[in-house]
């Protein structure tokens, strides 16, 4: 039993997702370690995004259980497969980003981060009435939200662009802003769908730094889908490999890198050739 199974923040058990006759995910089980970066990798069409969609409530899984354990010492848990997507965001505090950027392009950078803190502000503003009147409770809540937004803007290096429309930012900055926005919802688990897609090497390094910072300084658990192996290998504590909806490998980055079935899946060899590949890998290792 590996350490991520001992006190996981998220456990996925026997997850199956069928679309008609197509089995997108087949009896998948894995754990996301608390305060760790877990990468979900696999060739195109392996079912990675489907797993994300099940976790964040876009799809209702055909079978299986997804449990979130927000607290270290037990306490309240959430069965995510039974919750609607906005409940998962609001009550279970799971945040996610998408493969394509989904910022509110017409709103300013700062507003994007303020929207993410909507619920506390809405309460503090006494459902808008107090906000119009400018009651002090609302002002202090607004200040607090603004401070949090500025903290993250500072960290992603966009403080000086706070009042620009989000759509005007360069691509890499938009990616970082999306992560900052997700962090403003104060998540327990951060799910990132290909955060490094389309980034140049420098931006990719900045992203690595940001994700490490979130893990180390805030202790937030991260689950990410990634194709960029340099990102995966550098920052992941734990890697889960999918192929055709099944888990084919699960371990540390180092373990997975040397797993013959992973190599076979990525190179696309036939099942009966896997043994040959294994032999080759072992031969190369010696």
């Amino acid at each position: 039993m590996s350490h991520w199974d001992e006190n996981p923040v998220l456990s996925v058990e026997h997850l199956t997702m069928r679309f008609g006759g197509l089995v997108a995910i087949d009896d998948l089980s894995f754990s996301v370690g608390r305060g760790e970066i877990t990468a979900l990798i696999g060739p195109n069409g392996a079912g990675k995004t489907t797993v994300f969609n099940c976790i964040t409530g876009f799809y209702k899984p055909t079978e299986g259980r997804i449990t979130l354990h927000p607290h270290v010492d037990g306490g309240e848990t959430f069965l995510l497969e039974r919750m609607a997507d906005h409940e998962i965001a609001r009550e279970a505090h799971v945040a996610r980003t998408f493969q394509n950027i989904r910022l509110f392009g017409g709103m300013t950078v700062l507003e994007n981060l303020m929207v993410a803190q909507h619920n506390e502000l809405m309460k503090a503003s006494a459902w808008t009435i107090g906000g119009v009147l400018g009651i002090s409770g609302f002002r202090s809540a607004e200040h607090e939200a603004m401070d949090r937004a500025k903290y993250w803007l500072d960290h992603i290096g966009l403080l000086d662009r706070a009042d620009d429309p989000a759509a005007d930012l360069p691509y890499g900055a938009q990616r970082r802003l999306e992560i900052a926005r997700a962090m403003c919802t104060e998540p327990v688990l951060l799910c990132l769908d290909e955060p490094a897609a389309g980034l140049n090497p420098r931006e990719s390094n900045q992203l690595n730094e940001l994700l490490r910072y979130i893990r180390n300084e805030h202790g937030i658990s991260i689950l990410l889908i990634e194709h960029d192996m340099s990102v995966v290998m550098q920052i992941s504590d734990h890697v889960v490999v999918l192929d055709y909806g099944c888990k084919i490998s699960d371990g540390t980055a180092e373990e997975v890198r040397n797993d013959p079935s992973v190599i076979a899946a990525y190179l696309g060899v036939e099942d009966d050739e896997v043994e040959d590949v294994e032999a080759e890998v072992e031969g190369a290792a010696k």
């Binding site: 997507d85 906005h86 965001a89 945040a95 509110f104 709103m107 929207v115 993410a116 919802t185």
Partner: peptide, 12 residues
């Protein structure tokens, strides 16, 4: 701008 994303940020 994006109802689904707004919902994912916890907006009802």
């Amino acid at each position: 701008q994006d109802r689904r994303m707004a919902s994912l940020l916890g907006i009802n």
